[in-house]
């Protein structure tokens, strides 16, 4: 008998799925709200050589559970391996790799810009275009709050930088799945 009856699996047909997705991933991770949990997550990333792009931690509607939202580059890291390693942490309850087209992601940033009197009108105009808010005004500076996707915040930064960026603070992205009809 020739090895390989029709219902058997032909070895040459077997494939290993690709490891690198090549895009940015947002992982939404529910963890137990216990001391040291963030250290476990952060330690795992540094130990395994995974680079976190942004990280945001906050409470959820359940006080015993916190949410960690982190972004990382799927062109460099096998996301599957990252999530599997995270799942091994006993305090990690649930991990969601957010699908980009199915996700609302937002980040907030605060920009402190040097704003002499003659530039103020232009800065306010930029802020309006980006639907940003002026949250503080001093003699030489203005502070602007921008909320949106990471791309939008980066675009705003490019616009405002020539005016003299004194300081910038970003929260890192948070994300939620879109509602379904």
């Amino acid at each position: 008998m020739e090895a390989g009856t029709p219902d058997l699996v032909k070895l040459e047909d077997l494939r290993v799925p690709g490891q690198l997705s090549g895009r940015k991933h947002i992982l939404s991770i529910l963890v137990e709200n216990k001391p040291g949990v963030l250290a476990r997550v952060a330690g795992l990333f540094s130990r395994r050589g995974f680079n976190i792009d942004t990280l945001a931690v906050g409470p959820t509607d359940d006080p015993s559970i916190s949410r960690i939202t982190l972004t990382l580059d799927g062109a460099v890291h096998p996301i599957d391996q990252v999530t599997k390693q995270l799942h091994k942490l006993v305090n990690v309850l649930k991990i969601r790799d957010m699908e980009p087209e199915d996700t609302v992601a937002r980040e907030m940033a605060l920009f402190k810009v040097s704003a002499a009197v003659e530039n103020r009108a232009e800065i306010i105009q930029f802020a309006d275009i980006f639907r940003a808010k002026i949250v503080d005004v001093a003699r030489r500076t203005m502070t602007i709050e921008v909320t949106g996707s990471a791309d939008k915040i980066e675009a705003f930064e490019r616009m405002i930088r020539p005016h003299g960026l004194v300081e910038m603070v970003r929260t890192g992205e948070i994300a939620i799945a879109r509602g379904h009809e």
Binding site: V16, Q19, P78, Q81, K84, Q85, H87, K88
Partner: peptide, 14 residues
């Protein structure tokens, strides 16, 4: 037993 070992170093077909 450990899913993280699968395809960690060498990709698994099955």
């Amino acid at each position: 037993i450990d899913p993280a070992e699968i395809s960690k170093n060498v990709g698994a077909h099955i």
